[in-house]
């Protein structure tokens, strides 16, 4: 089936990847949300590396001449999905940071204005605007 060296290397790498990702989740260095893609990719690659009959079957199904290309092709596909997922998350985070920045700036402005004026006689504390945030 696949040449033994690449098969063992593949098994070792996928195994280490799955273990390492799991360890990162356990230590809370990686959120569960982000670990899913890596675990799924790693596990599937691992299964294909171990059971090369399955890999042969898929290769014939998609018409790949080399079993290793099937493995790397699907690996690459998963990476594309993971990267796209990251771009989506980064966009959401960027928007959230923008909102936070804007509201922080406004709150800081109102705080310093209050501090400046609160001691002055006759100053009325303005109504709260917070409910509209």
């Amino acid at each position: 089936m696949i040449a033994p060296p690449i098969r063992y290397i593949s098994i070792i790498i996928c195994f280490l990847l799955v273990i390492y990702v799991f360890e990162l989740v356990r230590r809370k260095h990686l959120n569960e949300e982000y670990s899913v893609g890596w675990l799924v990719t790693g596990s599937i690659m691992l299964i294909f590396s171990i059971f090369d009959g399955l890999l042969k079957w898929v290769s014939e199904l998609v018409g790949a001449t080399l079993f290793t290309s099937t493995l790397f092709f699907f690996g690459l596909m998963f990476l594309v999905v993971i990267c796209l997922h990251f771009s989506i998350r980064i966009s959401a985070l960027t928007n959230q940071v923008r909102r936070l920045t804007q509201h922080t700036a406004i709150l800081y402005h109102e705080k310093s204005e209050l501090e400046e004026n609160i001691e002055k006689p006759g100053y009325e504390v303005p109504d709260s605007h917070l409910e509209k945030l």
Binding site: T101, Y108, E113
Partner: peptide, 9 residues
Amino acid sequence: SVITMPYNS
């Protein structure tokens, strides 16, 4: 009145 952004945004 001045609203200061915490960084250049």
